[in-house]
Simulated scan of single mutants.
Amino acid sequence: MIKFSDVTKAYQTDEPVLAHCSLSVPEGSVYALVGKNGAGKSTLLKLAAGFLCPDYGEIRFQDMPVWENRERVQRDIGSMIDLPVFYEHLSARENLGLHQAYMQTNGNINGILKKVGLTGINDKPVSSFSYGMRQRLAIARALLHEPKLLLLDEPMNGLDPLGVEELRSLFCSLAREGKTLLVSSHILGDIAAMADTVGILSGGSIRREFHMNDYQGAGKELFEKEVLAEMKGDIL
Rank of each mutant, 00 (worst) to 15 (best):
A138Q: 07
T105E: 09
L90P: 02
I121G: 08
I112H: 05
Q135V: 00
I77G: 02
L113Y: 11
A92V: 11
N108D: 15
T105P: 06
Y131M: 15
L83K: 14
L137E: 12
L96G: 12
P84Y: 11
A138K: 04
I81E: 04
Q104V: 03
V126I: 08
L96Q: 04
R134C: 02
V85G: 00
S79R: 14
D76T: 06
M133V: 11
M103G: 06
G117P: 09
I139Y: 10
D76L: 09
A101K: 11
A140W: 02
S91A: 00
M80Y: 00
I139T: 10
N106F: 04
P125S: 10
R93A: 14
Q104R: 15
M133W: 01
A101W: 05
E88P: 05
Y87N: 12
I112E: 13
V85N: 10
R134D: 01
P125G: 08
N122S: 13
F86V: 06
N110L: 05
D76H: 11
L143H: 04
L143R: 09
E94H: 00
L83E: 12
L143Q: 08
H89L: 10
A92T: 08
Q135A: 01
K115G: 00
A92L: 10
K114C: 13
G117L: 11
L118C: 07
Q100E: 12
